[in-house]
């Protein structure tokens, strides 16, 4: 059985390699490939195909994990980790710390030295203090002065806590006011609409209001469920939650599927050239 399985996988690998080789031959004369190289502004055909091959191999490495963890997968996994970490740090270094912090401070110091400064220049120079606080994060690596790193954390936490009120109330109030819907729309509210349409609209709004209230009741644990109204409405709330969770599952699945299709599209269209780019 194991031998059969090995032969099977070898055959698959051989087939893929043949298709890939055929794809390379096609790529040499493919106008779609030429257009793609121009779009990506790559220096040449070889770099593009090398890039495509490495990308394809990295995808296959990831999918090989579905069968078993293997060195091929682990190699690419660590390469991904290195690239992702390095890119984030490089962007923060260049685009935040250098461009948005150091360069304005330098400019402001020059203005102050030339006695041609404004209040904004003083405020910018004061941002040096932000760097000092930022460096406190690295006291995490000291056993004795570990608590100093908490200063930076507390500043961020305090700011987050203070701002949370603004964010919450600005989101919450329209949500609460939006729940008060017209469950009996008149002709003025829906001009020209026949009675049956106004009835359906009223039903829809009523379903919405009942849903919101019953789900809120479901999560209300402050008092017991002995009350018949509370019990009944929590039951209704559960139904609504089931439907919402079902919709969530459906959307989740479609989302993951889109990512898979995008990868398959890349492998089929750009690597093997078996479908349209």
């Amino acid at each position: 059985m194991q031998k059969t399985s090995k032969i099977f996988w070898l055959l698959i690998a051989a087939l893929v390699l043949i298709l890939a080789a055929w794809g390379e031959v096609k790529a040499l004369h493919s106008p779609a490939v030429t257009a793609r190289i121009a779009d990506l502004e790559l220096p040449g055909h070889f770099i593009y195909r090398l890039q495509t091959w490495v990308a394809a191999l990295s995808c296959i490495a990831v999918y090989s994990f579905l069968f078993k963890e293997n060195p091929f997968y682990r190699f690419f996994e660590h390469a991904l980790l290195g690239c992702a970490t390095g890119y984030s740090c490089a962007v923060v270094m260049r685009q935040n710390l250098y461009s948005q912090w150091l360069v304005p401070i330098k400019k402001s110091i020059v203005n102050v030295m030339a006695s041609n400064y404004t209040r904004e220049d003083i405020a910018t120079i004061a941002l040096i203090f932000a760097g000092v606080i930022g460096l406190l994060w690295y006291f995490q690596y000291s056993k004795k002065y570990f608590w100093v790193s908490r200063i930076a954390m507390c500043i961020s936490l305090g700011a987050g806590a203070g701002l949370a009120f603004k964010d919450t109330f600005n989101q919450l109030i329209p949500q609460i006011t939006g729940t008060f819907k017209n469950i009996c729309p008149s002709e003025y509210a829906m001009p020209g609409a026949p009675l049956i349409d106004r009835f359906y609209a009223g039903c829809e709004n009523a379903i919405f209001v009942i849903g919101t209230v019953s789900v809120l009741m479901y999560f209300f644990f402050a008092f017991g469920n002995k009350n018949a109204i509370v019990k009944g409405s929590s039951k209704i709330g559960r139904w609504y939650l089931m439907i919402a969770l079902g919709a969530f599952f459906g959307n989740t699945f479609m989302s993951r599927l889109s990512a898979l299709i995008e990868r398959v599209h890349f492998l089929m269209a750009e690597w093997l050239l078996l479908s349209q780019m």
């Binding site: 329209p174 949500q175 006011t177 939006g178 919405f208 919402a244 919709a247 969530f248 959307n251 989740t252 479609m254 989302s255 889109s258």
Partner: peptide
């Protein structure tokens, strides 16, 4: 798609 279902209350309001 995963996160889109959480947007509907905001669309409604």
């Amino acid at each position: 798609g995963i996160e889109s279902s959480t947007a509907y209350p905001y669309l409604d309001s």
